[in-house]
Amino acid sequence: MIENLDTSVRLIAVGASLLLLTLLLAGQVRRPIKIALGGLLISAAAYLINSSTVIHPPRSIRPFVDLASVFAPFWTWLFGRRLFEDEPPKWVIPVTTAVLVVSWFIAHFVPRFDPAGFYSIHFVSLVLVADLLRVALGQRADDLVEKRRLIRLWLPVLVAAQTGGVLVFETIAGQAPAHPAVQLLNAVLIFTLTLFVGLALLRTDEELLAEASNLAVAKRPAVDLSASETVLKEKLEAAMAAGYYRTPGLAITDLADHLGVPEHRLRALINRRLGYRNFSAFLNHHRIAEARTILADRDRVDVPVLTIAMDLGYNSLPTFNRAFRTETATTPTDYRREMFIRN
């Protein structure tokens, strides 16, 4: 009975994944998310087939179905990182891909080292799941997009319950077949994750999936502001003009307390009216503007870049350098040199 129900859920989920893949290819989703989401749908369908005790693909293609299923945690991780606009370092993706492929090859074609390949895949996958949970929950306070803030709460629950739970179970139990009830629970969780993806695709929510500008700023004219928003905007501009953005470790909660307004009102103003998607982007806009002025000032040519970074509220030089490069496409040192050559 349980096995029949498990098989039915898996077939429905596979069909839904293929249907969503078709919608994805035709939809207006930004390319990085489209790639990650397409990979997630294909790998999820492969995993549903590969982990079934009833559905058996032909022996000749079984290793390649397993290869696709091995990448399910990878694509889930990459989809989450890109949905939250936190692209991983460039070297991480090819290195992770190489490790997973080599581990899969060992597991299938080098039998004497089989346990090593199996546990290597699970270790890497668990690291990816842990990193996604860190990004989703750890950076939630900085996120200004309300719908995405909600996703940061319950997407980790689904990922931890399905991907993380299955990986831990398989790591402990080894390659022994799972209990039918566990298999059914796994299929239901994957189907639930597929429904979430489908909801996002069918709605094609611009706040979540559409292209965003590099600076994520789309200023609106003052006529769009209500009376209360106008007053709050004036308070915010006064605080920024006074240099409150230089406060080290400044969070939106601190700024809301300083202005004497509820955090949700300030968050809505900065996101929906000023156009910033992350609070750090709002801070960096002001901090980097002052940094550019200082770096181009002949009277302050001997001020070290590290001192400038610390004075503007950054906790380290690498953090400042990344923010500066994001805003200007160059480093602080190169920018200073270019300004003096130009002048």
Rank of each mutant, 00 (worst) to 15 (best):
E207P: 02
S125E: 06
V188R: 02
K233W: 05
I42S: 04
L132D: 07
V9N: 03
P111G: 07
P57S: 08
V9F: 06
L5G: 01
Y47W: 13
H258L: 08
T307N: 14
S316V: 00
F320W: 01
T171H: 05
R287W: 03
I49R: 05
E146F: 11
M310Y: 14
D257C: 01
P63I: 05
F118E: 09
T319G: 12
N284P: 01
I93C: 02
R287N: 04
E87Q: 09
G27Q: 01
F118V: 15
A216H: 06
V70S: 14
V168C: 08
I341Q: 12
A281Y: 10
T194W: 00
E234M: 11
A178F: 08
L128R: 05
F320T: 00
V129R: 07
M1V: 14
V14H: 01
H122S: 11
F79P: 04
R220G: 01
K147W: 01
L11K: 03
A212L: 09
N214V: 12
N284Y: 00
M339I: 05
G27N: 01
T307K: 15
T330M: 09
L37R: 02
E211M: 09
N343Y: 12
N186L: 12
T53H: 11
V135Y: 04
V301D: 14
A281W: 08
L158Q: 08
V261S: 12
F105H: 04
Q183W: 00
I33H: 02
A323W: 01
H264C: 00
L37P: 02
V305N: 08
G138F: 02
L269C: 02
D142P: 06
F64D: 03
R30D: 03
V101M: 09
A160E: 05
A181Y: 11
N343C: 03
T333M: 12
A210G: 07
V303N: 03
R292Q: 15
Q183D: 12
L225A: 05
A212N: 07
I42H: 02
T253K: 08
R322P: 00
A187S: 15
